[in-house]
């Protein structure tokens, strides 16, 4: 996987300021941008509230946050901007919510994407988590609802999970404010580049698909050197995703290359 040079810019923010502005995020006085992704009913909004405090709660209409909610917090020496993305089961199905979430992570390039999952339903929640890890390699897994997992007598090997996914994993119970300090610490580590993620990438079972992907990835890497998620982009091209096709056609993708490798 793509290991970042520990060069001059290891601690630089990675987010794409121009694109974030286009996506409507006010970037004044924020050092880092955090995106919050997750399935519906995983307590994503509770995590958001726990991180930002009561003043910037999300507009929580039943079940989902359609208007993207924003908030901010200060931790250590840094100002963080946090964006609550709509809760989705997937990023592949081109419904309006999924498009919002997907575009934000891809084009906004948040410094950290916090993936909130329901610890008692890990397998189903990992579907979205693995898709997010295909797009970005700066992520933290927030293993929320640990209280429910305990109630269901489930034990989760957090360290092994972190190793499997290649990103920090923090168990929390946001309703009880449990684990929030650890989550903040993990966010800081990934944001400042102290922790370098080596995210899990999905293995395809279909040989045809693998061959096609390899062929396209090779092409993409020539056209856009340093693109960290070329495999994902190739997949989207094969699925005919209009927004990604456009990004390739206009060369917009070149703007998303890691700054220290372009």
């Amino acid at each position: 996987m793509n290991i970042k040079d520990s060069g001059a810019c290891a601690t630089c923010p990675a987010h794409n300021v121009a694109n974030l502005k286009k996506l409507g995020v006010n970037m004044e006085s924020a050092d880092f941008v955090i995106a919050l992704a997750g399935n519906p009913n995983t307590g994503k909004s509770t995590v958001f509230n726990a991180l930002t405090g009561l003043r910037q709660h999300t507009g929580n209409w039943p079940g989902k946050t359609v208007i993207r909610a924003e908030g901010g917090f200060v931790y250590g020496d840094h100002h963080y901007k946090i964006v609550d993305l709509p809760g989705t089961y997937s990023l592949l199905s081109t419904s309006a919510d999924e498009e919002i979430a997907r575009n934000f992570i891809l084009f906004g390039k948040p410094d950290v994407t916090v993936i909130v999952v329901d610890a008692s339903r890990l397998e189903r929640n990992l579907n979205l988590a693995l898709q997010v890890l295909e797009i970005t390699d700066r992520a933290v897994l927030c293993l929320n609802l640990m209280d429910e997992a305990r109630r269901n007598r489930l034990d989760i090997d957090v360290r092994l999970l972190a190793k499997e996914l290649g990103i920090p994993v923090v168990p929390t119970a946001a309703r009880q404010n449990e684990g929030i300090p650890d989550l903040l610490a993990a966010i800081r580590q990934v944001a400042t580049g102290e922790f370098v993620c080596r995210p899990h990438r999905i293995e395809s079972t279909s040989k045809n698909l693998r061959l096609a992907l390899d062929q396209l990835v090779a092409r993409l890497e020539v056209a856009f050197p340093g693109l960290t998620n070329s495999r994902w982009v190739a997949l989207r091209l094969l699925e005919g995703d209009a927004r990604i096709v456009e990004a390739v056609q206009t060369g917009e993708l070149a703007g998303l290359v890691e700054p220290d490798q372009a």
Partner: peptide, 9 residues
Amino acid sequence: LLESIYQDA
């Protein structure tokens, strides 16, 4: 694709 993802998950 979804089958692969779920298999990994």
